[in-house]
Simulated scan of single mutants.
Amino acid sequence: MRFHIAPVELQRIIFYCREQLPHEACGFLMGSEASDKPGQWQVHSFVPAANRSPRPEHHFDMEPRDLIPWLLHTASGGSDQLVGLVHSHPQAPPLPSSEDLRTPWYQVPSHWIVSFTDPRQPQVMAYSYQKDKDGQIRYHSLLVQH
């Protein structure tokens, strides 16, 4: 899979995640799959969501009220659909944690992690999650172009 995102949208993600430090930030990506190129996705917008985790320095839990309008929009056949989940790791590398792999978010086409291990140079990585034949969730790096 390949994801395309405008540099300005990627900067919006990083800016929002930085504003939430020292807490984990979260949100989701709206976009579409190219009808003529399966596996090619276009990210159109980043939608921040409140982190309602009781321990936001180490975990994220999206506020359902922030998600419902966008999920309904996708379900009703809106032009954009939910194509990705974003969250930050304030002090950890941009790799899925064991907790990330236990969430139901593996059903979304992409999972993006913004790491601030070096606050001057945040890293953004994107992954797809897949359940293998043993029921384990595995992740694969995605190619992101901006």
Score class of each variant (00 low, 15 high):
R2W: 06
D61E: 14
M125R: 07
A49F: 00
V47C: 13
A6Q: 15
M125T: 01
S88N: 08
H89T: 04
I113C: 01
P64C: 07
Y127H: 07
H58R: 15
H59N: 15
I68D: 11
F60M: 14
C26T: 14
V83G: 07
H140S: 14
F3G: 02
W105M: 10
R120T: 05
V144R: 07
V83E: 07
Q121W: 11
M62C: 14
K131F: 07
S53G: 08
T117Q: 12
P94Q: 07
G77F: 06
V43E: 01
Q121H: 15
S110C: 04
N51V: 00
H111G: 01
V47L: 12
Q107L: 12
K131I: 10
I113W: 00
V43A: 03
E9D: 01
S98A: 14
G27F: 03
D132E: 07
G84E: 04
E63I: 05
E33H: 03
G31A: 04
P7W: 02
K37Q: 13
P64Q: 13
Y127S: 11
G77A: 08
R138Y: 02
P96N: 05
F46C: 11
F60V: 11
Q40F: 12
E9K: 03
N51T: 00
S128F: 04
L29E: 04
R120C: 06
R120P: 00
G27E: 06
D132L: 04
K131A: 10
A75N: 14
E19D: 14
L142H: 03
Q42H: 12
L101G: 01
R52Q: 14
Q20K: 15
G77P: 07
F60W: 15
L143T: 13
M30N: 06
S32P: 01
